[in-house]
Design a protein around this nucleic acid. Structure first.
Lengths: 185, 185
DNA sequence: TTCATTATTTACCATAGGGTAAATATTTCA
DNA sequence: TGAAATATTTACCCTATGGTAAATAATGAA
């Protein structure tokens, strides 16, 4: 669910050398805030190691998890990266995490230099659309309990990294409801 | 909400002539099924006029509206168009509708011939991802009543075209709940 | 126009999940 | 290790929405 198919880390790192992209690999401690709301997001983040959580605040100030990005997946704050819109997403590390910071200039270089990269990147975006699309279908056809079970099956590691409240808000329920659901399983 | 920014119909029609794309414009009656589940979806559909509804069936056989595509918007069944996955989306016209059928070959030609088309198409896909992304946020932070009101504000025409049951399942509630919500407004 | 079909509303009770608050359990760190 | 901070569970009652079924309204075809 969290891994959109894309150019692998291996490829990215090779290209980085071959085309002199200057991609920076950065190591971050657990609970580091990579991006704050209201900052501009100039990067796609490629997770070489570790795990990111993307969240925003609702009107009452509660953190709502929007997305997890685990090893070998790529993510960004689309509203800020693609549009002039104000960024509302926070991005934080859930554990020690190693990231590549990819700018639009990097993308431009990749697209110019690497055969089929344009196609690969289109596929990546289409993949994102499908993942979110599928998630809406799941919300509309499955109970919170089913969604939680599937999440655990597909990402058993997640429980060790994310707090229950992170997962609950990702599923669209309160922490208390998730706790109740867990008791039933 | 339903219109992802893209190459306009005007541009598409010009390119159609200039690059001999052979895009077919087709006129369809109201309630025409453009695509059925289990068929392969080989097209992006560009709506020149009219309105499409995309829906799928849940386990009990209820139709769940996934998307509306109105004038000058473009849509497809992504799971079938991009992936080998079995298509689950039905597409039907909600009124007399005029469509362009765009194949991947058309896209290839457009990308090869038209400067920046690759970029435009990436932007289109990114836009889809953001629209769905935003919809998940709305589901997680707004009541059904708020979502209905906003839908009406942004698409006042929709009530005249779609049945209440279409709109209810799009919002993720039953027709009866929507009826109750309407009484409260 | 009239009848048949389809769409919408209403009513009733059932249930999943929310809100508040307090009780435990777990983690962190001095 | 032990105290403080944080995370999780539990309990209580409440509300939004679901499910079934019936009543009403609107549409469409003969």
């Amino acid at each position: 669910m969290f891994k959109a198919e894309f150019i692998s880390a291996k490829n990215l790192l090779e290209w980085n050398i071959e085309y002199n992209l200057g991609l920076k690999s950065v190591s971050l401690k657990k609970n580091h805030i990579v991006l704050e709301a209201d900052q501009r997001c100039d990067y796609f983040y490629f997770v070489l190691k570790g795990c990111l959580r993307l969240y925003y605040l609702d009107l009452e100030g509660n953190q709502i998890t929007h997305w997890f990005a685990d090893e070998n997946s790529i993510t960004t704050s689309p509203f800020s990266f693609f549009k002039k819109e104000k960024n509302i997403l926070f991005i934080e590390t859930l554990e020690e995490t190693e990231l590549l910071f990819i700018t639009s200039d990097h993308f431009k270089t990749i697209i110019k230099e690497v055969k089929n990269a344009g196609y690969e990147i289109r596929k990546l975006y289409a993949e994102f659309a499908m993942i979110f699309s599928r998630r809406i279908m799941d919300i509309h056809t499955k109970t919170a309990q089913e969604r939680y079970s599937e999440l655990l099956n597909n990402h058993p590691f997640l429980l060790e990294k994310a707090k229950l409240s992170h997962i609950a808000s990702f599923l669209g329920i309160t922490q208390q409801s998730l706790s109740r659901i867990r008791k039933n399983l």
